[in-house]
Design a protein around this nucleic acid. Structure first.
Lengths: 110, 110
DNA sequence: TCTATATTTCGATATATGTCGAATTATCGA
DNA sequence: TCGATAATTCGACATATATCGAAATATAGA
């Protein structure tokens, strides 16, 4: 059961766990809207996705925000890059593809 | 943020939470393999999906198994029907479709 | 009706998680 | 180099969750 139709079940559970918290799902959705998966927002674009921006509509302390971002990152859902004082985050396209594929195949025959 | 591209975000987080635990994910995967989503296994088929069967490869007490099944059911991921002493469970097709659709659209543009 | 089987509910307990504030690290600009 | 800003790490604490065993509920069959 550690593997299901060529999908790593442990990785799947880890991803679900990361996305299970409303604040973390919120962060992930923001990043989905912010940048095309696999790409950080260009600096000159209006949309930003550095840690501070992700917390503006979350009402949590910076340390809590950092904690949640770390969880998402450790689950493999986000990628990261420093840009000066800021740290940008964006959606890991492979992890997203794994999730998409799981539900796509699950939705087919039993 | 309670709605994202016509998908209920709260429902999404609830579903992820239910699937985040390895034992519950295991149960869900068994049901996906057991029966076509939306249908219970016919009684005369070899595959079964009553509560007891779902726990055979899980190594947890019956009460714990029941607890996990209840979580999946309350999250809207499973449907249920009593069959004599047994209670059958199967994958709710609409919930699965919601998840499939979320990742399908998320995987497209940002 | 009585017994066996399947499942759930309840109460207790250990562990995991979310949150904060304070302190720390990293970077930029003066 | 110093101060400001962004983000992380750490320690503490309250809450949530997973688990079990015992007891309760539901059903089938003798």
């Amino acid at each position: 059961m550690s593997n299901y139709r060529n999908i790593d079940v442990t990785q799947l559970a880890t991803a679900f766990k990361a996305l299970a918290h409303p604040n973390r799902l919120n962060i992930y959705l923001q990043l989905l809207d912010c940048c095309t998966p696999g790409t950080a927002c260009a600096v000159d674009e209006v949309q930003k996705c550095c840690a501070g921006d992700l917390g503006t509509n979350l009402d949590v302390a910076p340390s809590t925000l950092s904690h949640h971002i770390k969880e998402l990152h450790q689950a493999g859902l986000l990628q990261t890059s420093r840009r000066g004082q800021h740290i940008d985050y964006w959606v890991d396209p492979e992890a997203l593809e794994t999730l998409r594929r799981f539900f796509a195949t699950a939705d087919q025959a039993g």
